[in-house]
Simulated assay, not measured.
Amino acid sequence: MTCTLSETLAVVGERWALLIVREVALGLRRFDELRAATGAPRGVLSDRLQRLIAAGVLATRDYRVPGSRARQEYVLTEAGLDLLPVLAAFSDWGEKHLVDGGVPEVVYRHTGCGGRVTARLVCECGGDADVHERVIAQVNR
Rank of each mutant, 00 (worst) to 15 (best):
W93Q: 11
G114Y: 10
L26G: 09
R120G: 12
L121N: 15
V11Y: 03
E73C: 07
G112T: 05
T118H: 15
A70Y: 06
F90T: 03
R141A: 11
V11P: 03
V107N: 05
Y63A: 12
L98I: 13
D62Y: 07
T8R: 05
L87F: 05
A36M: 09
R35Y: 00
G39W: 06
Q138E: 12
N140A: 13
G115H: 10
Q50L: 11
Q50A: 15
T111N: 13
L98M: 14
V44T: 15
K96A: 15
V99Y: 11
S68T: 15
L58W: 08
T4Q: 07
A129W: 05
V117N: 00
D82M: 04
L84M: 09
R35V: 02
L49P: 02
T2C: 09
L87S: 02
A37Q: 09
Q72E: 15
A88L: 13
G102P: 04
L9P: 02
V117Y: 02
T77M: 08
N140C: 09
S68W: 13
A79H: 04
S91M: 04
R61S: 14
T111Y: 07
A119E: 08
V24C: 08
V99D: 13
A137E: 13
D128G: 14
V103T: 15
R109E: 13
A37M: 10
S68V: 12
G67P: 05
T38W: 01
T38N: 06
L45A: 02
V122P: 04
S46K: 10
E14V: 07
A79F: 00
V135Q: 12
V106I: 13
G13S: 10
L26W: 00
K96I: 08
M1E: 10
A37E: 12
D62P: 14
Y74P: 07
T2W: 09
C113W: 06
T4E: 10
C123D: 11
R116K: 15
L26P: 03
V106D: 02
V106M: 04
I136H: 08
V107Q: 08
R120D: 14
V75M: 03
E133W: 07
D32S: 15
F31V: 00
D82I: 01
Y63W: 13
E95F: 08
V117S: 03
G67C: 08
G127I: 06
E95H: 08
D92L: 01
A37Y: 03
L26M: 15
R42S: 05
R48G: 03
E14M: 02
E124T: 15
L19A: 14
W93C: 05
V139Y: 11
C3H: 11
G101D: 03
Y108I: 00
L28Q: 14
L19M: 09
A70D: 09
Y74D: 05
L84H: 00
D82R: 01
R15S: 03
V86M: 11
V44P: 00
L76H: 01
G115R: 08
Y63K: 04
R71F: 02
E23P: 00
P85F: 02
L19N: 15
D130T: 06
G114H: 10
E105F: 01
F90C: 11
R30W: 03
I53H: 06
G27P: 11
L5H: 07
C123I: 09
P85L: 07
P85T: 06
V44S: 14
P66A: 12
E73G: 09
V139D: 07
V103Y: 03
R109V: 12
M1F: 04
